[in-house]
Every structure is written in structure tokens, then in C-alpha cells.
Write a protein that binds this DNA or RNA. Structure first.
Lengths: 215, 215
DNA sequence: TTGGTCTCCTTACACTGTACAGTACAGCGT
DNA sequence: ACGCTGTACTGTACAGTGTAAGGAGACCAA
């Protein structure tokens, strides 16, 4: 008991931001309470003073990240506003890859998350959509962004990893051109459309186009 | 060493099907190689004779599940065929909830997975889409189904769990009606649109509608 | 009979989240 | 100034995890 860490070195905000740094630095999979405690100069159990368990900490980090989303730009027509919100969420997920896993693994909660939902729902209601259509559209857009961007992130990380790249190649080469002619024929296009803003906007514009003609 | 398990009790197919049963029974999160070995009457390390590691086993289970997807129904127009493929994948994910996590966590690979891609790409090419549009549309549809159905599964499991239900309620009640008027106003609709075939088809038809007008 | 290969076993290591109990300190009412 | 209580953090321990390393028995070819 020679050196004892002073009192009140910890608080929820510090824990969340430090946890976020670790998640982004070494990846969410190798994030552990022991590593977090080590970074904070504290034992792993100290975290439990502020969070009930690891999942609660995950929720807090997720909500913190959602707080970084800019508000909806005013004064544009609704398709541009919808585009802005969806692109913003995609950008945020790309800048913080752990956000994709945090969003996929647990149900939504938190103040900042509600703020984001409020923004998108407000746009849709102002555009004249009735309650049910606004809710349906919100869920559709959100799940599209989630699925498309998660996929993009995963593919990008697979292509960064040499082992993953080798796996992709051998997978492609093992496909018989007689059994899967279309896949083999479209291999270059498929490789090109596994991510990128262009691919994201393509699907987003399909949704918005469908919304336009439906209303 | 009184009783020794006989030789050749194991093979990849048996391991995959047994692993699948365990994942569906107790959930993918609590699946472990020790539990799998126990179910097979074998030590955990025996699995490594047939799979390089746990992720390789995941890939095999995923591909096995993809093999359960029925082929594309012939003789219909392309929107109905696209609907059939997407609905089929959703149904499969709902019947085997672990499939969602297996699809989200690792890149695609495997023979049966390629078969599914071949089916959808073939529909799109036959419908007259050019190579690039077919590839883009394929990726868009796939990521939409993945995101929407993963979300649906997660919300359903949250609503089954009493603790999760309580969490959802308190989250909703904690939202100030003055700060988040639209979210509070649309709470009933949002709760209704977190899943279900109707919600899934709504988004799917937006995409197909967008495709129709775009071409 | 010998040698090799295949299949499964045992042991061990470095981790994980977290339950439980203990300890030092701050601020309180008396 | 005293003792009490609550807070913040520590230490230890438990039940798990994936998997690396090496060993042992069974089969088969020579």
C-alpha cells in the first residue's frame, strides 16, 4: 500500500473517452476492462463503480459517439436532408469503426441517440409523411445505413488484412465458371461495389426514389 | 483410459450440424468449443483436426445455413423474383437467429453462399441490368436484408427478455416530450415498426420501386 | 514386425468478465 | 475531537474462454 491512487480520479466521461480511445486504437474485439483499468491507472473493478457491467459501458460509449453527429441542416428540401443525415451516420461509422459493432450488438438507448432519431423523424414529418409512414421510413433508412456501412467496414478491414485478401482471392478462384457463371463474370464489378460513397449513395437514392414515387 | 472413444466418430458434417444445434439451442454467444466437444463426446481439441480454428467453423456453419435457401423461383417477373430471394433470406435468418451474427461478423465465403449470389445476380442480369448496376443492386439488396433483419431479430429478442423490456420502457419514459416531441409522439408507431414482414416489405418495395423508375 | 500417419487426448497458458470482501479516505452530526 | 457512514478503489478468486504443444493409441503399407 505504498502508493495509492488518489480519490476521484475517475468519472464516467473520462472512462468513456478512454474506453473509446482503446477501442479505436486496438480494435473493439481486444478491448477489455483490464486494459481500460490499466490505461486509467486503476484496477479493472474500479469501472464497476460507475457502470453496472461491460455492456452498460458499451451503451455509454455508443451514445457518446452518436452525440458527435451534426444536427440536420435546415432550409433544404427533405430528400437532401435525409441524404445528409444518412451520410453523416455513415461518415461517423467509418471514422469510428467500433460504432458499427456497438450499434449492431445492443438495442438503442441514450439521450444522444434519441436526438438523432428526433432529427430524422422531424424531417420526415415536416415533409408531410403520416405517422406510420414516417416511422416505417425511419426504421428502413436506419437499418439500411447500418447494414450497408457495417458491410463496407468489414470488407475494407478484410482487404487491409493480407491474410483476408488471400482468402478473398482463393475464394474467387475456387468458383467454377460453369457452376457460377454470373458471379465469375461480375467478379470485378462486385469487388468494386463492396463499399465506397458511390455504392452507399446508389442504395440510398433507390430508397429515396421509391419514397418519392410512393408519396 | 478405460473407455476410449472409437476412431472416426467425427467428420465435418457432423461437427457442423451439432454446432448448429448448440448455437440455436443456447445462443451463439454461449457457444464454445468445449460445449461442442462435450456434445460430441470428445475433447475440445478434437475439433481442430477438421477446422483450423473457431472462425473457420463459423464459416462452415454459415455456409451450411446458406445451403438451406431455396433456389430462385423461375417464370416470374424480376421484381417478384427479387422479393422471393430477399424474403427467403429473411425467413432463414429468422428461423436461425445465429445466422445474422454469422453473416455480420465475417466476410462471405463458401460454395452455398456463392450459389445464392449466383441466383440473385442471374435474376438481375436477366432483367436487363448492366454489369455494374447488377452488382450495385445485389450489394444494396443484400446489405438491406442483412441490416433490416438483424435489427428485427435483436429487437425481438430484446422484447422477449423481461429485463430488456423494462429497459425499453424506462428509456422511452425518460425522454422529455419538450426536447424530443416527434419521438414521443411517434412512440407507438416506432414500437410497431421495429420488425415484422410488413416493415421488411415496406423497405424492400421502396428499393424495388426505386429500381423500376431508375431503369 | 516395423514405421508412418491419422485421430483424439492431456496438459497448460494467457486471457476474459465479474462476484465478493476488504481498506482507506471524505464529510457528516454530535 | 470523536465516531459513524458512504464512497472509491484494491486484491483475490472463480469459472470460463480459445488454442499451442506434445503424447498415445489405432490403423495401414511395406
Amino acid at each position: 500500500m505504498a502508493t495509492r491512487t488518489p480519490r476521484n480520479t475517475l468519472n464516467p466521461e473520462l472512462i468513456v473517452t478512454t474506453a473509446l480511445e482503446l477501442m479505436e486504437g486496438r480494435g473493439l474485439d481486444s478491448f477489455s476492462l483490464r486494459a481500460l483499468g490499466g490505461e486509467l491507472g486503476v484496477g479493472p473493478m474500479a469501472i464497476y463503480t460507475y457502470f453496472r457491467n461491460k455492456d452498460d459501458l458499451y451503451d455509454a460509449v455508443r451514445d457518446h459517439l452518436m452525440g458527435l453527429l451534426p444536427p440536420v441542416p435546415p432550409g433544404e428540401d427533405w430528400p437532401d436532408q435525409v441524404r445528409a443525415v444518412c451520410r453523416g451516420l455513415r461518415r461517423l461509422m467509418l471514422q469510428h469503426p467500433c460504432l458499427a459493432q456497438l450499434l449492431a450488438g445492443r438495442p438503442l438507448s441514450g439521450h444522444e441517440t434519441a436526438r438523432v432519431a428526433e432529427g430524422l423523424l422531424g424531417v420526415l414529418r415536416s415533409a408531410g409523411f403520416d405517422k406510420e409512414t414516417a416511422a416505417r421510413t425511419h426504421t428502413t433508412l436506419f437499418t439500411y445505413v447500418l447494414g450497408a456501412t457495417s458491410w463496407e467496414i468489414q470488407m475494407a478491414s478484410e482487404q487491409r488484412d493480407p491474410e483476408g485478401l488471400r482468402r478473398l482471392r482463393t475464394t474467387m478462384e475456387s468458383l467454377s465458371a460453369t457452376e457460377f457463371p454470373t458471379v465469375v463474370e461480375l467478379a470485378p464489378e462486385l469487388a468494386r461495389t463492396t463499399g465506397g460513397e458511390e455504392q452507399f449513395d446508389y442504395g440510398l437514392d433507390l430508397l429515396i426514389g421509391g419514397l418519392r414515387t410512393a408519396s
